[in-house]
Simulated scan of single mutants.
Amino acid sequence: MNALHIKKGSTKHSAYNLRPQFSDKQETHTLAVIVDNEPGVLARVIGLFAGRGYNIESLTVAEVDHTGKLSRITIVTRGTPQVIEQIKAQLGRIIPVHEVHDLTVEGPSVERELALLKVAADGDKRVESLRLADIFRANVVDSTLSSFVFEITGTPEKIDAFADLMRPLGLVEMARTGVAALARGSA
């Protein structure tokens, strides 16, 4: 506030438009980065995020072209639109990076994640966990007299919902792969 107690940019009748043009709304974006499959590339990409204080919510990496020795890094990150643009620009400047795609803004995409959940339950909780697994189309990949290991594939939100329902039934441990994503359509 200034000496007149008028909030900066609070009126559209001021001589100068002092309202910021930047959005401070946090958005989640999925970035697909095609890089050379060589030692140290992942460390450089991650170093870019760590050095600037950006958070990575999900990270998956795999070789996608054996002959061309290319890997695909799928990163889910969160930030303001300006921060996301800055991340994309800085990723594009790293030498072994070939392409950077923001799947969130480039059009419709398909995102999936795999999770394994261990649930230790007996009696009615055991039956209820099997019923919920059936509803969520989760597979039982291991079973003992006291526990199950479920495999579930879907959107991160689906996996979160399944885990939330399994917690009171005896969720002991969970492992998640991170998001794998592709743009829809022929392009």
Rank of each mutant, 00 (worst) to 15 (best):
F148M: 00
A133Y: 00
D160L: 08
T177Q: 14
H13Y: 12
G154C: 04
I87M: 14
A115W: 00
V100K: 00
M166Q: 09
V172C: 13
T28N: 15
D65W: 06
T80D: 11
G123A: 10
P81V: 06
V140C: 03
S146A: 12
V105Q: 11
M1T: 09
I75K: 01
L145A: 13
A181T: 03
S143W: 01
T74V: 10
R52K: 15
A3M: 08
I135K: 15
D65H: 13
L91R: 01
G178D: 05
D36Q: 11
K158N: 05
A62Q: 10
D124N: 14
E63F: 04
H5Q: 10
G185E: 09
E99P: 01
V172W: 12
V76A: 07
E38Y: 06
L31Y: 02
S186L: 12
G53Q: 10
L182I: 07
I87H: 02
E57G: 09
E111R: 09
G178N: 05
A187W: 03
A180T: 06
E99T: 15
G123F: 12
E157L: 12
R167S: 07
E63V: 07
R44N: 10
M174H: 05
A89R: 14
E63A: 05
K25E: 15
V33G: 01
P108F: 10
V172S: 15
T155A: 15
S109T: 05
Q26W: 04
L130H: 00
Q82L: 09
A15Y: 14
I87V: 13
F150K: 01
G154D: 00
A180E: 08
H66F: 01
N2W: 05
L165H: 13
S14L: 02
A50Y: 13
P39D: 06
A181S: 13
V110A: 15
K12M: 09
F162H: 04
L42A: 06
I6H: 08
T28L: 15
I159L: 15
T67A: 04
Q26D: 13
G51S: 09
A161K: 01
S23E: 14
G47S: 11
R176F: 08
P108Q: 13
L130P: 01
